[in-house]
Design a protein around this nucleic acid. Sequence first.
DNA 1: TCTCTAAATGAAAATGATTATCATTTATAT
DNA 2: ATATAAATGATAATCATTTTCATTTAGAGA
Lengths: 143, 143
Amino acid sequence: MRLTEKGIAAALKHHGYKLTPQRRVVIGAITASPDHLTPADIYRKVHKEHPNIGLTTIYRTLEILASLELICELHAGGSGRSYTIGAPEHHHHIICSSCGAVVDFSSYDISPLEAKLSRETGFEIEGHLLEFTGRCRRCRQNA
Amino acid sequence: MRLTEKGIAAALKHHGYKLTPQRRVVIGAITASPDHLTPADIYRKVHKEHPNIGLTTIYRTLEILASLELICELHAGGSGRSYTIGAPEHHHHIICSSCGAVVDFSSYDISPLEAKLSRETGFEIEGHLLEFTGRCRRCRQNA
DNA sequence: TCTCTAAATGAAAATGATTATCATTTATAT
DNA sequence: ATATAAATGATAATCATTTTCATTTAGAGA
């Protein structure tokens, strides 16, 4: 289950941010895409319909959305930063290296591993990064 | 078990790369540090003793070392790219968010999870990213 | 609905990281 | 010792991201 455009808009307001037309457009672009998008990707996507939206605004909006965990930052694959739509529950991502599609999975609980590592290394675990890359079913069939 | 300066130098030669003084210095800086280092970090470290080594050379050397998997690229934490010394076996990393120390762990086999995901999602898994951040024992005790 | 104000925007410049270029130097095979 | 392809360093070019600041605007309250 992924967050919806309406849900994200409501969460923004709930946290005291203004719901500007520009922010609506950025949120719309992210919720409409199954892929991971860089700030430049989003700029290109929205620039046709909304040529007045600046890249700076996109950066600022993405930063807010990420800080509220309404979108997820991805690390695997490309070198630059990219984002995908968030979800209500904690989850991880599989990214298709061919088409860029992102699939969530929440069927894995990482906390036992965290506990084990904490015991073995003396670290107090604060966070983790777990992502997979691969080729999605469709891309495999098209090959 | 981590790779040694000698082992990395030998591997470089084995793959047909020349073992220049500059590369030796970069390799030395990485093997000498328990932390993750950005290209700029390494430049600062080596610049005192070897002011003639350019940042460009450091970038080029890091790229080669990473492509041969003699060093590991880290993603968690900082935004820029950073590296740490490699190891002979596949492993993952825990990074101290306070002091930057990197601890390896290889006590976790991710392949059952990969198989499960492949079955559930139809993806052919190609790679993964698994890192933890936390506070190491020493930093916790100093706090 | 109107007004006000803090927040948000966009354009531009500044910054910072990374890559490309190219003339010069050098590690190593012979 | 020599030849040569590879590597280097200085510089410039590129690209992503952040800062700045004057202007605009969403939304709270009258």
